[in-house]
Design a protein around this nucleic acid. Structure first.
Lengths: 201, 201
DNA sequence: GTCTATAGAACGATAGAC
DNA sequence: GTCTATCGTTCTATAGAC
């Protein structure tokens, strides 16, 4: 017997194992973010994680369930964004929102699930649903609730569209010069546009 | 002998056949635009065109060459855009550019190759190269040449990014309410933003 | 010009041994 | 918990008959 307390013996159900699960998730994020849903294979994830492909199915089930588990981490920072944007005067909401989004994209850790979602949502309906849930229902609608303008939801989405578009050009397709431009220069030009979408007449 | 003039006999080389080639191209555009590069199969294109898959290879070679032939039609209207945007006073360039782009997207015929390019460019490097050639080198750079502002190229690309972002939300991912909003309402909000990117201080 | 047939490879998923 | 083995499917691409 090990020197633990007097609870039930053995591992509690549902916690399963060591770090293998996390290694698979990390590998899955890497693969999905680089290749998108269709081009990523369960076998490729398994090889990158140094395990057998059957083990991936053992932990997560189908390929779609692996994807959902891999991108789930993108939701907590995204939900934080709502608070960040709404704390402080409305005149600064555009800049706070722009800075927050570029902060996520510039950080290699948070960038991966975002890339995975955007690369996959374009060709896969399940991933598109994840994208919609992330951008629209969870985020923009709540921000729109705080605007008392007509077309508030549409405005919030057009603001988001500017950010999504820059992300596409800079991080996904990598078109120059926007792909290599200093991020502060981009923020300086984009933040007023986002602000304008939210609050201009 | 047919009643033609006295040139060489038979069909000139390179023109090959009737309308089969066009039927394949139309089917290819349909498939690539709906599924993206990876999920589209040569067999699926062949079936949609009512021919054998080997015939597709016969006409175009590899799958990648089929793709290039299918999206080639997107280039002539895009090149026309440069002229449309630059004819007339610079104060109206934003609206002309916005109207032109939404005109392409709202027309089901021109929408298909655009969808094909954007759905494919996100996961396929060859398609990404097509996208870059279309958006950046052919279009935005030339428009930037006409602006005598600092960061002209970056400005032109941020303007394009707003349009790409709206296209993603409205036509690719289909997020509400922007997916169903009246196009004139969207143009009214987006055109000033595009104009601002191009000419604001 | 259009097809049949097939080579050769990769895929998702499962059953079951250890 | 981890792996071997394998089933059934689908894919690109080519060779070659008609």
């Amino acid at each position: 017997m090990t020197g633990v307390t007097s609870r039930k013996r053995g591992r509690p159900p549902g916690t399963e194992s060591s770090d293998t699960r996390d290694r698979i998730l990390t590998a899955a994020r890497e693969e999905f973010s680089e290749r998108g849903y269709e081009k990523t294979s369960v076998r490729g994830i398994a090889k990158a994680a140094g395990v057998d492909s059957a083990l991936v199915h053992h932990y997560f089930g189908t390929k779609e369930q692996v994807f959902e588990a891999a991108v789930e981490v993108a939701f907590s920072p995204a939900l934080k964004m709502r608070d960040v944007v709404l704390e402080g005067p409305i005149e600064g909401a555009g800049e706070r929102m722009t800075r927050f989004v570029f902060g996520l994209w510039e950080n290699p850790v948070t960038r991966k699930p975002l890339l995975a979602i955007i690369r996959s949502a374009v060709n896969n309906e399940a991933a598109a649903a994840v994208f919609r849930r992330l951008v629209a229902t969870q985020l923009m609608r709540r921000i729109a609730d705080e605007l008392d303008t007509p077309d508030a939801e549409l405005r919030a989405e057009l603001a988001a569209a500017q950010l999504v578009g820059v992300a596409m050009m800079r991080y996904v397709i990598r078109i120059e010069p926007v792909a290599s431009a200093d991020v502060e220069l981009i923020i300086a030009r984009v933040a007023p546009v986002v602000q304008g979408h939210l609050t201009n007449p």
